[in-house]
Design a protein around this nucleic acid. Structure first.
Length: 840
DNA sequence: ACGAGTAACGC
DNA sequence: GCGTTACT
């Protein structure tokens, strides 16, 4: 079968070219689009007026023709006549200052036509979906939806139309996912130490290129630079090593490889590997047509002429991917080493020599590992990431190159735009939404925020046994669905709807029409919660089970961001009242549930946004609560967690609990935060795990003796200087570049500056980058600065006193709540004992 | 270039 | 009291 992966505009052919992946041959097929569909803009100016006011439009060399079309304007709830201005190619429509869009500025509706996507939309071809070619025309492959899913869909939908809509989504999600033949590439260049090679100038030789493919082609291409003796001993397990006398031949071999795979994977290939190969090749005298890389300085990404290039650096630094798909397992997600260690448990090859100094063998090993890791990032868990990409292409309707390079707001934007075009709706201009629906009616608690957010209920401090946590599964998508929230339905133009107020706001919601966002997000939510999670759990077939798992997690990525985008100015359907109404309905739901629980006699200990902590409810009380909330709010409340015990302090978002299955759950406490020194973090973990053994109040007492010993030992080691420096380091991320800290000088900035200064002294230049996103490790010291970068500090400079204080405040977060005094715990306070002589 | 709310700490 | 970070 053929799977649509991408569509590009070909200037040479004057039309779009569709790229299909043929899963039988494992090849990419370019199919020219002969449908006659052209990119277009819409304007409310009637044709005569347009011709009169903007005669240059029809004289534009890219102009094709004018048409009148009927479109639904959701903001005014009317069908309107629009003039469709068609162009011969995407470039004449948007982008350049001389484009038709610029000429018509202020009149265009479809202001975001970019690249080629309009071709796909009008043809209703969906990226990632299977097709067959009939006389060169792609026809969708019929997708069978299993009976079990059909039944679930039927039971969920309110009417026939909605059932059909849901089934359409089910076909999209259930369509087969191809195994993708692909190759990962990594290059090394001969640059001097501490100089970042420029991909534009490409001054240094390419000395190694590694590749690692899905069909077993794996190896390293090396440039011969010194005596041949070294060559004989090279053995890299799993890799074929080839030497080239001449760089040009090496590049030629690389280009042949690139050309023979439908998908090429790199890590940072957009900014380094591919532009470098491109510039280097031209520099060595290659003709452009013999280089399969398409690149220019202002290009957004490096494209390959005959394949799809995925830059995994861009994909894995995408916040949604980090947070939702991988549970935030890696933090900055900046380096291949870090991401690979987190997801694969294997990092880059460590090395001491610089790249040009390395032996052939070391260089090959180092480079090959990079290619291997790059490939493995897409291959682990049975090609999980490739499958996720295909599914998210289908949901967002974005081609593979675009999906992997853009953030969630672009995915959701594209999903909604597609829906507009499908239904014959106009895509509203951002300014019009703001103009008609701009205002908010609530006041945010946090300074600088636009509207009121979630509720956090004050915890009741103490230790509680048998605590049950109930939560709303995806609360915000649920209230968007049940509240009929959408940019066109909130503050709609109908007089009779103004009575239908969103509690806690001055907004009203349409009672006549179903909102697009509401219906789409509702369908995706129901499919995830009631269909795919369920069939994934019940499926006996491993492969099928995995596909359902991938589907539900792909849906999760979209649902989790579906509320946030409406509160973001960068989102073109930005609509503050929608975002504000969402949190308002969320607050309404949680407060209502809390009141109901109290009425039923269940003590509520704590709650945050979408969850409530209930103290020892009876089965009957619980069932009543869940049922009455489902009946009344039409949002299902379910049991999330069960604790043997939970400890609350007076602080919100701070608690410690032991789950029924024996795990400990620590939220928000400093002892868990990643900037806390490992030494304290480890001690904290020891204490919480000792506590987790406790089944009742008396066994708490027994744990305390062990805790006492742990703390005493830690203090002794600290005083004796036995704790290694790295265990004492605070680890804090620079969220801005150094120069931007102009209001204050935080400690991590100080430490970063010290390090840079030291390197300048040693090398005259700065070898590493200390920029936005870097993690800075520092030690608290006794000198005037009070802080030293980990790499510059000595063990005898450690400010033991400060560390004891940090230790105390950190541990007290747990001990306080248990009514254990840190000092008392230690009997004669070793801290005082230690501090006294020092203070004199 | 997805939201708001909370805590802690240094300046 | 504000700025910054990490967390929910």
């Amino acid at each position: 079968m053929l799977y649509l992966f991408s569509v590009r505009y070909s200037g040479a052919e004057g039309r779009a070219v569709m790229y299909f992946y043929d899963d039988e041959g494992g090849t990419l097929r370019a199919v020219p689009d002969h449908s006659g569909h052209k990119p277009y803009l819409l304007t409310e100016l009637p044709p005569e007026e347009l011709l009169e006011k903007y005669p240059e439009v029809v004289r534009h060399p890219g102009f094709n023709k004018l048409d009148v079309v009927e479109k639904y304007d959701a903001l005014s709830d009317r069908w309107v006549k629009m003039t469709k201005v068609e162009a011969l190619d995407p470039l004449s429509i948007g982008g350049s200052p001389k484009s038709i869009r610029e000429v018509l500025r202020g009149h265009t509706w479809e202001s975001k036509i970019k690249y080629h996507h309009c071709y796909i939309y009008d043809r209703q071809l969906i990226p990632g979906m299977p097709y067959v070619l009939t006389n060169g025309e792609p026809k969708p492959v019929e997708v069978e939806v299993p009976e079990s899913i059909r039944r679930l869909v039927k039971s969920l939908s309110e009417d026939k139309i909605q059932e059909e809509e849901m089934l359409e989504w089910a076909r999209l999600l259930n369509a087969p996912i191809p195994k993708i033949r692909r190759i990962a590439i990594d290059i090394e260049v001969e640059s001097e130490a501490f100089r970042v090679p420029s991909p534009k100038l490409a001054e240094d030789r390419v000395i190694a290129v590694s590749y690692y493919s899905s069909d077993g082609k794996r190896g390293v291409l090396l440039l011969r630079r010194r005596s041949e003796d070294e060559e004989k001993s090279i053995n890299i397990p799993g890799a074929e090593v080839r030497f080239f006398d001449n760089e040009k031949d090496l590049l030629h071999a690389v280009f042949t490889l690139l050309d023979s795979y439908p998908v090429v994977l790199t890590f940072n290939g957009d900014n380094f590997d591919l532009p470098y190969l491109y510039s280097r090749a031209l520099k060595l005298g290659f003709k452009k047509e013999n280089v399969p890389i398409v690149w220019s300085e202002k290009a957004e990404y490096a494209e390959l002429r005959n394949s799809i290039h995925i830059d995994l650096y861009k994909f894995f630094t995408n916040k949604s991917m980090k947070v939702y798909a991988f549970g935030n397992k890696y933090r900055e997600g900046q380096t291949l080493d870090e991401i690979a260690l987190a997801l694969l448990g294997k990092g880059k090859v460590k090395h001491e020599d610089t790249i040009p100094e390395m032996s052939y063998e070391k260089l090959a090993e180092y480079s090959f590992r990079d290619a291997e890791l790059t490939y493995e990032l897409t291959a682990f868990s049975d090609d999980l990431v490739m499958k996720l990409i295909i599914l998210m292409m289908r949901i967002s309707k974005l081609p593979m190159e675009d999906l992997t390079r853009h953030n969630i707001s672009a995915w959701i934007r594209n999903m909604f735009y597609f829906e507009h075009r499908q239904r014959g709706w106009l895509i509203p201009n951002p300014e019009e939404i703001i103009q008609q629906k701009g205002e908010t009616s609530t006041k945010a608690i946090i300074k600088g925020k636009k509207y009121l957010g979630a509720i956090v209920i004050d915890p009741i401090p103490g230790v509680y046994f048998n605590v049950l946590v109930v939560d709303f599964a995806s609360l915000y998508p649920s209230v968007i669905k049940t509240g009929n929230l959408s940019y066109e339905t909130v503050r709609c133009p109908h007089e009779e709807c103004k009575k239908n107020i969103v509690p806690g706001t001055t907004h009203w919601v349409c009672t006549r029409k179903k909102g697009m966002m509401s219906s789409l997000i509702g369908i995706l939510r129901d499919l995830r919660v009631y269909v795919y999670k369920k069939v994934a759990k019940e499926s006996k077939d491993d492969e099928e089970k995995q596909q359902y798992e991938v589907i539900q997690s792909a849906l999760k990525v979209f649902l989790n961001a579906s509320y946030g985008v409406f509160g973001s100015e960068a989102f073109p359907l930005y609509c503050p009242p929608v975002a504000e109404s969402t949190t308002a309905l969320g607050r309404y739901a949680i407060l209502k549930t809390m009141r109901r629980a109290v009425d039923l006699g269940i003590p509520v200990l704590y709650g945050d946004t979408d969850s409530l902590f209930l103290w020892n409810p009876t089965q009957e009380q619980l069932e009543k609560l869940l049922q009455s909330i489902l009946d009344e709010l039409r949002i299902d409340l379910s049991i999330d967690k069960e604790y043997k015990w939970v400890v609350f302090s007076e602080r919100k978002k701070n608690y410690l609990g032991a789950l029924k299955d024996g795990r400990v759950d620590v939220k928000g406490l400093v002892g868990k935060k990643r900037n806390t020194p490992d030494f304290i973090k480890n001690l904290f973990t020891d204490i919480t795990s000792a506590l987790s053994q406790a089944e009742n109040i008396t066994s708490f007492e027994e744990s305390i003796e062990k805790i006492r010993e742990d703390i005493k030992r830690a203090i002794r080691l600290l005083k004796e200087g036995e704790i290694p420096l790295d265990q004492l380091a605070f680890n804090v991320v620079l969220t801005k570049d150094l120069e931007e800290y102009n209001k204050t000088t935080p400690q991590h900035k100080k430490a970063a500056q010290q390090l840079l200064m030291e390197y300048r002294k040693l090398y005259g230049s700065v070898p590493m980058s200390v920029t936005r996103g870097s993690l800075v490790s520092y030690i608290k010291t006794r000198d005037k600065q009070g802080v030293k970068h980990l790499q510059l500090a000595r063990i005898d400079e450690v400010d033991v006193e400060k560390y004891l204080e940090v230790m105390k405040t950190t541990l007290e977060q747990v001990l306080d709540a248990l009514e254990i005094s840190f000092d008392e715990l230690l009997g004669v306070s070793p801290i005082d004992e230690f501090l006294r002589p020092q203070q004199k």
